[in-house]
C-alpha cells in the first residue's frame, strides 16, 4: 500500500525531474556578425484634422515597411503610414510610441505592406520642378510600373469643399477630402512628365517622337485609356516599343 509520505516523495521527485526550471538562463548563442542599423529621424508629429470624405492616411492603420535613406542604408521593419494630405511619411516609434514625421530630405524611398495589395507598395521621393505641374519641392510617388520608363502616382488628397459645422457652441470648418491622384511618367535621366488626363493623346504628347508606333500598338491592342489600370498597360506597351 502506498503511504502518504511516499506519495509526497514521489511528487517531489516528479517535480524536480519534470520541471528543470532555469530562472537564470545564460545567453549562450549570439550573432557572429553585427550589422549597422540605420535610424529614422524627424519631427515629433501631432497632426490631426477633422474631415470627411477620404482618409488622409493611405489605408488608415499602421503597417510594416522599410525605408531606404539617401545614404543607401535601409531601415527595416518599422511601423509607418503615409499622410496623403501632407505628403509625408509618418513613423511610430515602438519604444516610446511617439509619432514622427520622417525628415523627407533623408528618404529615398519607402516600401509599405498594404493589406489589399499582393506586393509591397513602393513610394519614391522624387524631386519635382514647376514644369511637372507640382508646386512642391519633392513628392512621394507610388511606383506603378518600372521599366526603362516608369509610371508613378502621386496619391494626393485635397480639400474638395468645406462646410461650417457647429460643435460645442462654436463654428468649425469641416473639410471634405477627395482623392485626386496625379500620374507622372519618368523617362531615363529622371525627366518627369505629368500625364494630364486618362487619354491616349496625353501619352502621344509625352512620347511625340514615337507617336506613330505607339498609336499603332494601341490600335492593335484596342487599348483605350479610361482608368489607372489602362494607363499602366499603356505605359508597359510604350516601354516595349522604346
Amino acid at each position: 500500500m502506498i503511504k502518504p509520505s511516499n506519495i509526497t516523495l514521489l511528487c517531489v521527485v516528479f517535480f524536480i525531474s519534470v520541471f528543470p526550471v532555469s530562472l537564470k538562463s545564460q545567453d549562450s548563442s549570439r550573432s557572429i556578425t553585427l550589422d549597422h542599423k540605420p535610424k529614422l529621424s524627424g519631427e515629433v508629429y501631432n497632426f490631426s484634422m477633422r474631415s470627411t470624405g477620404e482618409d488622409y492616411y493611405l489605408d488608415g492603420d499602421w503597417q510594416r515597411g522599410d525605408v531606404l535613406l539617401v545614404s543607401d542604408k535601409k531601415v527595416r521593419d518599422k511601423l509607418i503610414k503615409y499622410n496623403t494630405y501632407l505628403d509625408e511619411l509618418i513613423w511610430m516609434s515602438e519604444e516610446s510610441y511617439k509619432r514622427v514625421k520622417v525628415d523627407k530630405s533623408l528618404v529615398k524611398e519607402f516600401t509599405i505592406d498594404l493589406p489589399d495589395r499582393a506586393e509591397p507598395v513602393v513610394f519614391k521621393n522624387i524631386e519635382m520642378d514647376k514644369s511637372s505641374g507640382s508646386d512642391k519641392k519633392s513628392n512621394y510617388l507610388e511606383k506603378l510600373y518600372k521599366g526603362d520608363i516608369s509610371l508613378m502616382a502621386h496619391r494626393r488628397v485635397t480639400i474638395a469643399s468645406e462646410r461650417l459645422v457647429s460643435s460645442g457652441g462654436s463654428l468649425h470648418s469641416l473639410p471634405r477630402l477627395r482623392s485626386r491622384p496625379k500620374f507622372y511618367i519618368v523617362k531615363p535621366g529622371n525627366q518627369v512628365y505629368e500625364v494630364e488626363r486618362f487619354s491616349r493623346r496625353a501619352l502621344y504628347r509625352i512620347f511625340s517622337d514615337k507617336r506613330s508606333e505607339i498609336r499603332a500598338a494601341f490600335r492593335d491592342e484596342r487599348l483605350r485609356i479610361r482608368d489607372e489600370n489602362d494607363l499602366i498597360r499603356a505605359v508597359s506597351l510604350i516601354d516595349e516599343i522604346l
Binding site: 509526497t8 511528487c11 517531489v12 517535480f15 532555469s22 537564470k24 545564460q26 549562450s28
Partner: peptide, 28 residues
C-alpha cells in the same frame, strides 16, 4: 500530499540554487 510536495520542491530549490541555473556556459 500534492501541496506538501510543492512546498518541499520550493525549499529544495532555495537551498540548492544550482538547480535553477541552466547548463554551463558554452558558446556555440
Amino acid at each position: 500530499e500534492f501541496i506538501n510536495a510543492l512546498v518541499a520542491t520550493f525549499f529544495i530549490y532555495i537551498i540548492f540554487p544550482g538547480c535553477l541555473v541552466s547548463q554551463s556556459q558554452t558558446f556555440d
